[in-house]
Design a protein around this nucleic acid. Structure first.
Lengths: 171, 171
DNA sequence: AAAAATGTTCAGTCTTAATTGAACGATGCA
DNA sequence: TGCATCGTTCAATTAAGACTGAACATTTTT
Protein backbone atom coordinates (compact mmCIF):
# COMPACT_ATOMS: atom_id res chain seq x y z
CA UNK A 1 0.00 0.00 0.00
CA UNK A 2 1.21 3.49 -0.79
CA UNK A 3 -0.08 6.98 -0.18
CA UNK A 4 -1.57 8.70 -3.20
CA UNK A 5 0.24 12.03 -3.26
CA UNK A 6 2.82 11.77 -0.55
CA UNK A 7 4.79 14.79 -1.70
CA UNK A 8 3.63 16.88 -4.63
CA UNK A 9 6.07 19.47 -5.92
CA UNK A 10 5.06 23.09 -5.84
CA UNK A 11 4.78 23.47 -9.65
CA UNK A 12 2.62 20.35 -9.71
CA UNK A 13 0.29 21.74 -7.07
CA UNK A 14 0.02 24.94 -8.99
CA UNK A 15 -0.71 23.21 -12.27
CA UNK A 16 -3.45 21.23 -10.61
CA UNK A 17 -4.97 24.36 -9.16
CA UNK A 18 -4.88 26.15 -12.50
CA UNK A 19 -6.42 23.17 -14.19
CA UNK A 20 -9.15 23.14 -11.58
CA UNK A 21 -9.87 26.80 -12.17
CA UNK A 22 -10.11 26.13 -15.89
CA UNK A 23 -12.55 23.28 -15.61
CA UNK A 24 -14.67 25.18 -13.12
CA UNK A 25 -15.19 28.18 -15.37
CA UNK A 26 -15.67 25.81 -18.25
CA UNK A 27 -18.43 24.03 -16.38
CA UNK A 28 -20.14 27.36 -15.93
CA UNK A 29 -20.05 28.07 -19.64
CA UNK A 30 -17.32 30.69 -19.48
CA UNK A 31 -14.25 29.53 -21.37
CA UNK A 32 -11.49 27.37 -19.88
CA UNK A 33 -8.76 29.97 -20.23
CA UNK A 34 -10.65 32.47 -18.15
CA UNK A 35 -10.43 30.30 -15.08
CA UNK A 36 -6.89 29.12 -15.72
CA UNK A 37 -5.72 32.64 -16.09
CA UNK A 38 -7.41 33.93 -13.00
CA UNK A 39 -6.09 30.98 -11.01
CA UNK A 40 -2.58 31.64 -12.27
CA UNK A 41 -2.72 35.29 -11.32
CA UNK A 42 -4.36 34.48 -8.04
CA UNK A 43 -1.48 32.24 -7.02
CA UNK A 44 1.17 34.60 -8.24
CA UNK A 45 2.74 36.72 -5.51
CA UNK A 46 3.90 39.17 -8.16
CA UNK A 47 2.11 40.67 -11.18
CA UNK A 48 2.54 38.93 -14.53
CA UNK A 49 2.76 40.29 -18.06
CA UNK A 50 1.00 38.84 -21.06
CA UNK A 51 3.98 36.81 -22.19
CA UNK A 52 4.38 35.33 -18.73
CA UNK A 53 0.84 34.09 -19.00
CA UNK A 54 1.36 32.81 -22.53
CA UNK A 55 4.35 30.84 -21.29
CA UNK A 56 2.71 29.48 -18.16
CA UNK A 57 -0.53 28.38 -19.77
CA UNK A 58 0.82 27.64 -23.24
CA UNK A 59 -2.02 29.37 -24.98
CA UNK A 60 -1.93 31.91 -27.76
CA UNK A 61 -1.25 35.52 -27.05
CA UNK A 62 -4.49 36.42 -28.78
CA UNK A 63 -6.43 34.45 -26.20
CA UNK A 64 -4.53 36.01 -23.37
CA UNK A 65 -5.11 39.48 -24.72
CA UNK A 66 -8.86 39.07 -25.08
CA UNK A 67 -9.31 37.12 -21.89
CA UNK A 68 -7.39 39.55 -19.78
CA UNK A 69 -9.64 42.32 -20.97
CA UNK A 70 -12.68 40.27 -20.10
CA UNK A 71 -11.30 39.72 -16.62
CA UNK A 72 -10.57 43.40 -16.39
CA UNK A 73 -14.13 44.28 -17.35
CA UNK A 74 -15.29 42.07 -14.51
CA UNK A 75 -12.74 43.74 -12.24
CA UNK A 76 -11.31 40.31 -11.57
CA UNK A 77 -7.82 41.48 -12.42
CA UNK A 78 -6.27 44.91 -12.49
CA UNK A 79 -3.45 46.36 -14.47
CA UNK A 80 -0.49 47.49 -12.41
CA UNK A 81 2.53 49.58 -13.11
CA UNK A 82 5.96 48.09 -12.89
CA UNK A 83 9.02 50.30 -12.61
CA UNK A 84 10.83 50.85 -15.87
CA UNK A 85 8.97 48.28 -17.93
CA UNK A 86 6.53 49.26 -20.61
CA UNK A 87 4.82 45.92 -20.63
CA UNK A 88 1.37 45.63 -19.09
CA UNK A 89 1.36 43.72 -15.83
CA UNK A 90 -1.69 42.22 -14.20
CA UNK A 91 -2.55 40.97 -10.77
CA UNK A 92 -5.63 39.23 -9.44
CA UNK A 93 -8.30 41.12 -7.56
CA UNK A 94 -8.51 39.21 -4.31
CA UNK A 95 -11.73 40.83 -3.19
CA UNK A 96 -14.15 38.21 -4.47
CA UNK A 97 -17.06 40.21 -3.22
CA UNK A 98 -16.27 43.00 -5.64
CA UNK A 99 -15.72 40.58 -8.50
CA UNK A 100 -19.02 38.89 -7.89
CA UNK A 101 -20.95 42.09 -7.66
CA UNK A 102 -19.29 43.94 -10.48
CA UNK A 103 -18.79 40.99 -12.80
CA UNK A 104 -21.16 38.14 -12.34
CA UNK A 105 -24.23 39.90 -11.03
CA UNK A 106 -24.27 42.62 -13.66
CA UNK A 107 -23.89 40.03 -16.38
CA UNK A 108 -26.78 37.99 -15.06
CA UNK A 109 -28.85 41.11 -14.60
CA UNK A 110 -28.27 42.12 -18.19
CA UNK A 111 -29.43 38.75 -19.50
CA UNK A 112 -32.49 38.79 -17.32
CA UNK A 113 -33.26 42.26 -18.61
CA UNK A 114 -33.51 41.18 -22.21
CA UNK A 115 -35.56 38.18 -21.14
CA UNK A 116 -37.89 40.44 -19.22
CA UNK A 117 -38.42 42.88 -22.03
CA UNK A 118 -39.34 39.99 -24.28
CA UNK A 119 -41.96 38.86 -21.81
CA UNK A 120 -43.38 42.34 -21.77
CA UNK A 121 -43.48 42.55 -25.53
CA UNK A 122 -45.28 39.22 -25.68
CA UNK A 123 -47.79 40.32 -23.13
CA UNK A 124 -48.72 43.55 -24.85
CA UNK A 125 -48.94 41.83 -28.23
CA UNK A 126 -51.26 39.36 -26.66
CA UNK A 127 -53.39 42.06 -25.17
CA UNK A 128 -53.97 43.45 -28.64
CA UNK A 129 -54.67 40.03 -30.03
CA UNK A 130 -57.24 39.44 -27.38
CA UNK A 131 -59.16 42.57 -28.41
CA UNK A 132 -59.93 40.97 -31.76
CA UNK A 133 -61.12 37.40 -31.13
CA UNK A 134 -58.38 35.43 -32.83
CA UNK A 135 -58.99 31.71 -33.02
CA UNK A 136 -58.19 30.95 -29.41
CA UNK A 137 -60.98 30.46 -26.93
CA UNK A 138 -61.41 33.27 -24.46
CA UNK A 139 -60.68 30.97 -21.52
CA UNK A 140 -57.40 29.81 -22.98
CA UNK A 141 -56.30 33.36 -23.58
CA UNK A 142 -57.15 34.18 -20.00
CA UNK A 143 -54.94 31.37 -18.77
CA UNK A 144 -52.07 32.50 -20.94
CA UNK A 145 -52.42 36.09 -19.85
CA UNK A 146 -52.43 35.03 -16.25
CA UNK A 147 -49.26 33.04 -16.76
CA UNK A 148 -47.46 35.84 -18.53
CA UNK A 149 -48.34 38.07 -15.62
CA UNK A 150 -47.04 35.49 -13.21
CA UNK A 151 -43.78 35.29 -15.11
CA UNK A 152 -43.44 39.05 -15.21
CA UNK A 153 -43.99 39.24 -11.51
CA UNK A 154 -41.34 36.62 -10.79
CA UNK A 155 -38.93 38.30 -13.12
CA UNK A 156 -39.12 41.59 -11.32
CA UNK A 157 -38.80 39.81 -8.01
CA UNK A 158 -35.50 38.35 -9.14
CA UNK A 159 -34.31 41.61 -10.57
CA UNK A 160 -35.07 43.20 -7.24
CA UNK A 161 -33.24 40.51 -5.35
CA UNK A 162 -30.15 40.86 -7.50
CA UNK A 163 -29.91 44.56 -6.77
CA UNK A 164 -30.96 44.21 -3.16
CA UNK A 165 -28.46 45.80 -0.80
CA UNK A 166 -29.30 43.01 1.61
CA UNK A 167 -27.62 40.60 -0.79
CA UNK A 168 -24.39 42.52 -0.44
CA UNK A 169 -24.74 42.12 3.28
CA UNK A 170 -25.03 38.37 3.03
CA UNK A 171 -21.92 37.97 0.91
CA UNK B 1 -45.44 56.37 -40.56
CA UNK B 2 -46.76 53.07 -39.40
CA UNK B 3 -46.87 51.22 -36.10
CA UNK B 4 -44.37 48.39 -35.76
CA UNK B 5 -46.53 45.46 -34.72
CA UNK B 6 -50.06 46.74 -34.95
CA UNK B 7 -51.68 43.33 -34.70
CA UNK B 8 -49.61 40.20 -34.14
CA UNK B 9 -51.50 36.94 -34.48
CA UNK B 10 -51.59 34.60 -31.51
CA UNK B 11 -49.38 31.93 -33.08
CA UNK B 12 -46.85 34.60 -33.94
CA UNK B 13 -46.81 35.90 -30.39
CA UNK B 14 -46.30 32.41 -29.13
CA UNK B 15 -43.49 31.66 -31.53
CA UNK B 16 -41.74 34.83 -30.44
CA UNK B 17 -42.08 33.89 -26.81
CA UNK B 18 -40.76 30.39 -27.42
CA UNK B 19 -37.86 31.79 -29.38
CA UNK B 20 -37.12 34.17 -26.53
CA UNK B 21 -37.12 31.33 -24.04
CA UNK B 22 -34.71 29.42 -26.23
CA UNK B 23 -32.22 32.20 -26.61
CA UNK B 24 -32.37 32.99 -22.92
CA UNK B 25 -31.45 29.48 -21.82
CA UNK B 26 -28.89 29.40 -24.57
CA UNK B 27 -27.29 32.57 -23.26
CA UNK B 28 -27.00 30.88 -19.89
CA UNK B 29 -25.18 27.91 -21.38
CA UNK B 30 -28.07 25.49 -21.09
CA UNK B 31 -29.23 24.35 -24.52
CA UNK B 32 -31.71 26.22 -26.71
CA UNK B 33 -34.31 23.50 -26.73
CA UNK B 34 -34.60 23.51 -22.97
CA UNK B 35 -35.92 27.04 -22.93
CA UNK B 36 -38.09 26.62 -25.99
CA UNK B 37 -39.70 23.57 -24.52
CA UNK B 38 -40.37 25.11 -21.16
CA UNK B 39 -41.80 28.21 -22.81
CA UNK B 40 -44.07 26.08 -24.97
CA UNK B 41 -45.38 24.12 -22.02
CA UNK B 42 -45.69 27.25 -19.96
CA UNK B 43 -47.99 28.85 -22.49
CA UNK B 44 -50.01 25.73 -23.04
CA UNK B 45 -53.30 25.63 -21.12
CA UNK B 46 -53.36 21.85 -21.51
CA UNK B 47 -50.62 19.22 -21.09
CA UNK B 48 -48.70 18.16 -24.18
CA UNK B 49 -47.28 14.80 -25.22
CA UNK B 50 -43.85 14.26 -26.74
CA UNK B 51 -45.12 14.29 -30.30
CA UNK B 52 -46.98 17.52 -29.71
CA UNK B 53 -43.71 19.06 -28.71
CA UNK B 54 -41.87 17.53 -31.65
CA UNK B 55 -44.47 19.06 -33.95
CA UNK B 56 -44.54 22.48 -32.31
CA UNK B 57 -40.80 22.98 -32.07
CA UNK B 58 -39.80 20.91 -35.08
CA UNK B 59 -37.01 19.18 -33.28
CA UNK B 60 -36.16 15.51 -33.11
CA UNK B 61 -37.99 13.22 -30.76
CA UNK B 62 -34.66 12.21 -29.26
CA UNK B 63 -34.02 15.78 -28.17
CA UNK B 64 -37.48 16.10 -26.74
CA UNK B 65 -37.12 12.88 -24.81
CA UNK B 66 -33.83 13.80 -23.20
CA UNK B 67 -34.72 17.42 -22.60
CA UNK B 68 -38.03 16.61 -20.97
CA UNK B 69 -36.25 14.38 -18.52
CA UNK B 70 -33.81 17.12 -17.73
CA UNK B 71 -36.67 19.49 -17.07
CA UNK B 72 -38.29 16.86 -14.93
CA UNK B 73 -35.13 16.42 -12.88
CA UNK B 74 -35.21 20.14 -12.25
CA UNK B 75 -38.88 19.83 -11.40
CA UNK B 76 -39.57 22.40 -14.07
CA UNK B 77 -42.20 20.20 -15.68
CA UNK B 78 -44.23 17.35 -14.32
CA UNK B 79 -45.76 14.33 -15.96
CA UNK B 80 -49.52 14.21 -15.78
CA UNK B 81 -52.04 11.49 -16.44
CA UNK B 82 -54.55 11.90 -19.21
CA UNK B 83 -57.70 9.82 -19.27
CA UNK B 84 -57.50 6.83 -21.56
CA UNK B 85 -54.27 7.77 -23.28
CA UNK B 86 -51.11 5.84 -22.61
CA UNK B 87 -48.89 8.60 -23.93
CA UNK B 88 -46.89 10.65 -21.45
CA UNK B 89 -48.20 14.17 -21.04
CA UNK B 90 -46.30 17.03 -19.50
CA UNK B 91 -47.18 20.39 -18.09
CA UNK B 92 -45.03 23.24 -16.85
CA UNK B 93 -44.40 23.74 -13.18
CA UNK B 94 -45.55 27.29 -12.62
CA UNK B 95 -43.96 27.61 -9.20
CA UNK B 96 -40.70 29.21 -10.24
CA UNK B 97 -39.53 29.28 -6.70
CA UNK B 98 -39.50 25.49 -6.56
CA UNK B 99 -37.78 25.25 -9.92
CA UNK B 100 -35.08 27.64 -8.90
CA UNK B 101 -34.42 25.95 -5.62
CA UNK B 102 -34.62 22.40 -6.79
CA UNK B 103 -33.04 22.87 -10.20
CA UNK B 104 -30.69 25.75 -10.52
CA UNK B 105 -29.39 26.08 -6.99
CA UNK B 106 -28.58 22.42 -6.55
CA UNK B 107 -26.75 22.42 -9.85
CA UNK B 108 -24.68 25.42 -8.91
CA UNK B 109 -24.03 23.99 -5.49
CA UNK B 110 -22.74 20.78 -7.00
CA UNK B 111 -20.30 22.61 -9.24
CA UNK B 112 -19.06 24.73 -6.39
CA UNK B 113 -18.56 21.58 -4.37
CA UNK B 114 -16.11 20.08 -6.81
CA UNK B 115 -14.35 23.42 -7.08
CA UNK B 116 -14.10 23.60 -3.31
CA UNK B 117 -12.68 20.15 -2.87
CA UNK B 118 -10.02 20.97 -5.40
CA UNK B 119 -9.04 24.03 -3.44
CA UNK B 120 -8.76 21.90 -0.34
CA UNK B 121 -6.64 19.32 -2.07
CA UNK B 122 -4.32 22.04 -3.35
CA UNK B 123 -4.01 23.54 0.09
CA UNK B 124 -3.07 20.34 1.84
CA UNK B 125 -0.62 19.39 -0.89
CA UNK B 126 0.93 22.77 -0.46
CA UNK B 127 1.17 22.34 3.28
CA UNK B 128 3.22 19.20 2.72
CA UNK B 129 5.36 20.91 0.15
CA UNK B 130 6.09 23.69 2.55
CA UNK B 131 7.42 21.26 5.14
CA UNK B 132 10.28 20.39 2.83
CA UNK B 133 11.71 23.63 1.45
CA UNK B 134 10.97 23.28 -2.27
CA UNK B 135 12.44 25.99 -4.47
CA UNK B 136 9.99 28.71 -3.55
CA UNK B 137 10.96 31.38 -1.07
CA UNK B 138 9.28 31.09 2.29
CA UNK B 139 7.60 34.47 1.89
CA UNK B 140 6.07 33.54 -1.42
CA UNK B 141 4.67 30.34 -0.01
CA UNK B 142 3.18 32.29 2.84
CA UNK B 143 1.38 34.58 0.39
CA UNK B 144 0.04 31.62 -1.56
CA UNK B 145 -1.15 29.85 1.55
CA UNK B 146 -2.88 32.97 2.70
CA UNK B 147 -4.64 33.29 -0.63
CA UNK B 148 -5.76 29.69 -0.68
CA UNK B 149 -7.20 30.21 2.77
CA UNK B 150 -8.96 33.32 1.59
CA UNK B 151 -10.45 31.42 -1.31
CA UNK B 152 -11.55 28.57 0.92
CA UNK B 153 -13.22 30.99 3.25
CA UNK B 154 -15.12 32.68 0.45
CA UNK B 155 -16.13 29.37 -0.99
CA UNK B 156 -17.76 28.23 2.21
CA UNK B 157 -19.45 31.60 2.58
CA UNK B 158 -21.09 31.13 -0.79
CA UNK B 159 -22.02 27.55 -0.05
CA UNK B 160 -23.62 28.78 3.13
CA UNK B 161 -25.50 31.50 1.34
CA UNK B 162 -26.87 29.11 -1.24
CA UNK B 163 -28.34 26.88 1.42
CA UNK B 164 -29.39 29.73 3.63
CA UNK B 165 -33.08 29.55 4.55
CA UNK B 166 -33.08 33.33 4.42
CA UNK B 167 -32.51 33.07 0.69
CA UNK B 168 -35.74 31.16 0.33
CA UNK B 169 -37.42 33.98 2.18
CA UNK B 170 -36.18 36.58 -0.24
CA UNK B 171 -37.38 34.75 -3.31
C1' DA C 1 14.63 55.46 -40.18
C1' DA C 2 14.94 50.63 -39.39
C1' DA C 3 14.28 47.10 -36.24
C1' DA C 4 12.39 45.28 -32.10
C1' DA C 5 8.94 44.87 -28.71
C1' DT C 6 4.19 44.89 -27.35
C1' DG C 7 -0.71 44.55 -27.66
C1' DT C 8 -4.87 44.12 -30.59
C1' DT C 9 -7.90 42.41 -34.26
C1' DC C 10 -9.96 39.19 -37.25
C1' DA C 11 -10.67 35.36 -40.48
C1' DG C 12 -10.15 30.68 -40.05
C1' DT C 13 -9.55 26.27 -37.41
C1' DC C 14 -10.64 23.27 -34.01
C1' DT C 15 -13.14 21.53 -29.77
C1' DT C 16 -16.97 20.93 -27.28
C1' DA C 17 -21.44 19.82 -26.72
C1' DA C 18 -26.11 20.15 -28.67
C1' DT C 19 -28.96 17.75 -31.82
C1' DT C 20 -30.30 14.11 -34.86
C1' DG C 21 -31.43 9.43 -37.24
C1' DA C 22 -31.82 4.95 -36.80
C1' DA C 23 -32.11 0.90 -34.15
C1' DC C 24 -33.98 -0.88 -30.11
C1' DG C 25 -37.01 -2.49 -25.96
C1' DA C 26 -41.29 -2.25 -24.06
C1' DT C 27 -46.19 -1.99 -23.87
C1' DG C 28 -50.71 -2.35 -25.50
C1' DC C 29 -53.85 -4.13 -29.09
C1' DA C 30 -56.13 -7.19 -32.74
C1' DT D 1 -48.46 -14.14 -31.95
C1' DG D 2 -48.02 -10.40 -35.05
C1' DC D 3 -48.56 -5.47 -35.49
C1' DA D 4 -48.68 -0.71 -34.01
C1' DT D 5 -47.52 2.82 -30.75
C1' DC D 6 -44.21 5.14 -27.55
C1' DG D 7 -40.29 6.23 -25.45
C1' DT D 8 -35.27 5.60 -24.92
C1' DT D 9 -30.43 5.04 -26.30
C1' DC D 10 -26.37 5.78 -28.81
C1' DA D 11 -23.20 6.52 -32.69
C1' DA D 12 -22.78 10.09 -35.91
C1' DT D 13 -23.58 14.81 -37.48
C1' DT D 14 -23.87 19.56 -36.91
C1' DA D 15 -23.70 24.03 -34.89
C1' DA D 16 -21.69 27.29 -31.51
C1' DG D 17 -18.14 29.46 -29.91
C1' DA D 18 -13.47 28.99 -27.93
C1' DC D 19 -8.98 29.38 -29.53
C1' DT D 20 -5.26 30.32 -32.80
C1' DG D 21 -1.97 32.37 -36.47
C1' DA D 22 -0.89 35.95 -39.03
C1' DA D 23 -1.23 40.64 -40.19
C1' DC D 24 -1.44 45.04 -38.21
C1' DA D 25 -0.94 49.52 -35.30
C1' DT D 26 1.77 51.64 -31.92
C1' DT D 27 5.52 52.67 -29.21
C1' DT D 28 10.37 52.08 -28.04
C1' DT D 29 15.17 51.21 -29.05
C1' DT D 30 19.33 51.44 -31.89
Amino acid sequence: MHKDSPSATWPAVRRKFIEAGGSTTQSFGLGRILGQMYALLYLSPTPLCLDDIVRELSVSKASVSTTVRQLERWSAVKRVWVQGDRKDYYEAETDFHAVLRHGLLTTVRKKLDTAGSQINRAESSLRETRARGNGKSHDDLAVVMQRLDHAKQFHSKIQGLLSNPLLDHLL
